[in-house]
Amino acid sequence: MSRLRADNVTLAYDQRTVATDLDVAIPDGSFTVVVGPNACGKSTLLKALARMLKPATGGVYLDGRLISSYRSREVARRLGLLPQTSIAPSGITVGDLVARGRYPHQRMLRQWSSEDEAVVTESMRRTGVLELSGRLVDELSGGQRQRVWLAMVLAQQTSILLLDEPTTFLDIAHQIEVLDLCAGLHEDEGHTLVAVLHDLNQACRYATHLIVLRPGGEIAAQGDPSEIVTAALVEDVFGLPCRIIDDPESGTPLIVPARRDRGRPTRHPVVSAHAS
């Protein structure tokens, strides 16, 4: 079953078509990860799923109804999105920012119920930013800030969460921290997650359902990473010769790129004379 799916959509910005006749169904309760080379339309697909971009043809369906037929607030109660770039207004505290995630549940005269307060506190606890509640968002590190934004999306209390490159600009430790957090949300609370990721190995480790897009926005493969990720697929989609081994930690596929020039030692690269 899929609460969220895109039927036969063509995605385009003005004149430039990014993807044609795409069919995507997000399995309920999955941690779906979308990967693909740069500019293959990963983020565009996510935008379409989050009704930020209207498909040129075809339709995106949420709970059986066209997503564009919902009121904006109603979508925001069912589906949360962490965009690639968000702006923290200067001088805002962590607690205030997370509280803004309650907007779709509030009314003009019902702005701050005790439920709102409880949900905001729980969201901050879940993402480990509760003790930062009174701090200014400007003062936080990149990893902390990303967890604050995640807390804001959690405060929206939607069972479907879309994350557009949630690990960009983070160092490796913080990338893993954010992904572990996402995996926890998926496993412990049963959220359906859809994330766009750059790192294939991370995608293979965390995804329960992987969607591999080819340049031109065509689906090259989708399914359980252990079943679909092969050296042939990676070479075909990314143009990267590689070997696939089992990740010694998780047993998931691990992509090991081939050396640039097989058979020659790389200790003395040809270009080293110019590189200083």
Binding site: M52, A76, P89, R100, G101, P104
Partner: peptide, 20 residues
């Protein structure tokens, strides 16, 4: 005004939170 404070978070975030 409340919609305005949502718009401060950027267009994408504001839309995601249900602001027209």
């Amino acid at each position: 005004a409340r919609r305005l404070s949502m718009l401060e978070l950027g267009d994408d975030t504001a839309t995601a939170l249900g602001v027209g």
